[in-house]
Amino acid sequence: MPVWQTEQGPAWRHRTTTAQWLHWLGWLLAAMAFVFCWQIMTVDTKWFFVKDAPSQAADLFSRAWPPKWSYVNTLWRALWDTINIATLGTLIGVILAVPVAFLAARNTTPSHLVLRPFALFVIVASRSINSLIWALLLVAILGPGILAGIIAIALRSIGFVGKLLYEAIEEIDESQVEAVQATGASRAQVIDYGIVPQVLPAFAGICVFRWDINIRESTILGLVGAGGIGLQLQSSLNTLAWSQVTVIFALILATVIFSEWVSSRVRKNII
């Protein structure tokens, strides 16, 4: 914020002239980028459908309401499957993520040149691909069913848990590790006494957090055939049975709220 001398004494302005211009230029560029992207994006858009959206929405609502509550009784088994997909998937993912995290953390990796980049690649690959895409691939390989869902969730969880865990490992207090080393402890003992106690609470928090996310994600894996309540959603959508879709949405919502509650309770108690 510049001050400069004029004949009337010092003057002040929020920005210098150049800064002001750059400021406007930034906004201009942003606006241009938006317009440019907007035009490309909407090339194939049928504006008739967009204009028609309110009446479509009204129509949708009239068919979705009232919900067909009796349908809920056919959903319990699917819900149980959904929860199992999330929980078992998280479990497997966490078990696989722990060694990956220790290989990826700068201060615990046995090899900076080979294993660390490899572990980081595993993490990035797992994180970049959404669990729904993992499920899409696995259904093609393993066939539709709950197994594909569990593995999809596990594969996606490796990256998430691995990343957060290795960051936690890199942030530990090194002096505690040094003190354990100085007693003549072996590498494994240093991990057990110096590192594990420091990252355990973070680890538990990360796992529960991921479980919560996985419950959400496992509700839709059925859309590509990977088991759970998403299967019912898919078949209801295919038959345009919107009153059943409403019931499924309500059940998903309740499950998600429940898992969020559980996860926040547990995390609060850990910290």
């Binding site: 994006m41 909407t42 194939d44 858009t45 049928k46 459908f49 967009v50 959206a53 479509q56 929405a57 949708l60 729904l132 959400r216 994600e217 839709i220 859309l223 959508l237 949405f249 998903i252 919502l253 998600v256 709220i257």
Partner: peptide, 24 residues
């Protein structure tokens, strides 16, 4: 926040038709 993107997308595709606009 209650529903994830994919579920919202299902609804918006039903309203706006297939394509990038619904995704947007």
């Amino acid at each position: 926040r209650a529903f994830q993107e994919i579920i919202i997308a299902i609804l918006f595709v039903a309203m706006f038709g297939f394509g990038a606009f619904a995704g947007f």
